[in-house]
Design a protein around this nucleic acid. Sequence first.
DNA 1: TTCCAGTCTGTGCACGTTCACAGTCTTCTG
DNA 2: CAGAAGACTGTGAACGTGCACAGACTGGAA
Lengths: 331, 331
Amino acid sequence: MKRPTIHDVAAAAGVSRGTVSRLLNGERYVSPAARVAIERAISETGYVVNRAARSLVTQRTGSIVMVLSEPHEKLFEDPNYSTLIRVAIRRLAERDISLVMMLAGDEGDRERVVRYVRGGYADGVMLVSTHAGDPLVNALGSTTPAVSCGAVIGRETAIPYAATDERLGARQMAEYLVGQGRKRIGMITGPMDTPGGIQRLEGFADVLGRKASTKLIAHGDWTQASGERAMAALLERAPDLDAVFVASDLMAAGALAALRAAGRTVPGDVAVGGFDDSSVATSTHPPLTTIRQPLAEVANETVNLLLALLDGAKQVEPVILPTELVIRESA
Amino acid sequence: MKRPTIHDVAAAAGVSRGTVSRLLNGERYVSPAARVAIERAISETGYVVNRAARSLVTQRTGSIVMVLSEPHEKLFEDPNYSTLIRVAIRRLAERDISLVMMLAGDEGDRERVVRYVRGGYADGVMLVSTHAGDPLVNALGSTTPAVSCGAVIGRETAIPYAATDERLGARQMAEYLVGQGRKRIGMITGPMDTPGGIQRLEGFADVLGRKASTKLIAHGDWTQASGERAMAALLERAPDLDAVFVASDLMAAGALAALRAAGRTVPGDVAVGGFDDSSVATSTHPPLTTIRQPLAEVANETVNLLLALLDGAKQVEPVILPTELVIRESA
DNA sequence: TTCCAGTCTGTGCACGTTCACAGTCTTCTG
DNA sequence: CAGAAGACTGTGAACGTGCACAGACTGGAA
């Protein structure tokens, strides 16, 4: 049983291919009579346009590719991805654009992505949490519309992005801790080659000034275990600290364990502030005071940027969205 | 600057289209001389085959679609999705198949998916956590290769799937709790229209027999809040219980909070067992004894089933993978 | 020598669209 | 009433590939 083509529809409706095509593509100049005849023919035959044939002539694929960088095996960002993917699918579906997923873990992956895009298999690219100096950014070139979800640091080629105001979020938390009367405030950062790692520390330093001594700063890699280690190190270096800002909720969970092991109460002895407001934030004891990122809106804006580019916008401005302090019990 | 076509490559290599095509598709009968000439021409011109043109003639798209059912806004399963997506992308990329994502939340979504598949825009379908009686399963028909990640319950059309042995996992936990000398063991289940909801209860009942009275069973919806509510209800109905098996880690985190609020110690007064071994399991206090699901392997096997179908297998058998008990401190 | 099998190559056609163009019919304007 | 403008329709030519087929060349067997 062959799939019906535009010919079949035209024949069934008693018109020509051209008219059917015009209706399909929402052009003007289709008479009401033709319109109803074609619409009936379409539903009778169960016709659906052949995308390959269309792509062949229009040079457009009707799909965009989302590129996930996965430097580490499993990151705290996982839940974030899910939100992003969902929002992107939904928004793109409105325009009948489909979302293709690709990975950019190693060199082979990146090459595949470049081939894919250069080959014209997608109309646009959406980068996700791309690392500093990722060669992919330059390899893609400026030919194809590309945006990033989350800032791309170390860019030679500027690429439009939507992101949360990481620095603002860190300031909010730091100010809150100071406002609570905490005097010796430490920080556990993320990896210093990610926007979240760098900018959350910057925001912290904005508020603490020279009180943010290196003695009070430890680095983690987003994992819970690293948060635990960093907290232990911090306690050793500065036993008198009375608050700590941890750059992710998952690491904060680790920090809580280290504090408990050291016999410190939270928030009594030490106040703990997290970041992300992920599902972990409510499952710890005590629940984490943290910074909520407007993930869905970031995803939304990222899609908006890409759509604008697809619609021919020459240049688009980055979008940075504000974070929000969520007060629970840990601080 | 036009993209090079197979004609250009043929001309540059001094052969005909046909020969280039044969090399590209790995057919026999390409002389060594032609081979090197073509390979050089390809890399010189930067040629990459036009997928649309190829699809048009082969009737294959080289892509499969993953359909995410999202009945609720945000589920505990989010992190699971990430693993699944990553594994699927990677495995499919090996065969140069790309992964398209779609949502099947409401009727409109499902219609879109059916149109997509029926329109031949994808060579196969991968269903994810499809709910009971999802009309999508029947709507897809038996024409296109389709598999499911996670069992599809209430199926009229049987659809091959890979899944974890939910029932086994529940038995493992129940047996462990019994083995620890617990006498009054309650359970908090998931929604009873999901495989995880039904089968984890079945496994629990397998071990407890008639001790699994309805008085000791409460239902949740996978959310932390529902776990907390269910635990509170359970404590009211059966104040003497000394253990509870919670069908997800996130709900278990809620249960922990309810127990703490009621002044019960864990595991002293009440032992708590979770399910999933998600990131939440290690962030609670105490860390959860739980059941680990081999998510990556499930994803792997799901892809295997689909690939087998794509390769023309008439029928494939479901794959069910064993779970594993992870002992921490909550039980 | 003749024939055949095997290896390799080139060519025409079909795949199902969109687009530009030419054409027809209607209605309005001067 | 002539002419123009507008509304609508049909047609041929691409788009870039894979496939079937026909043909050319080789080496070996009869």
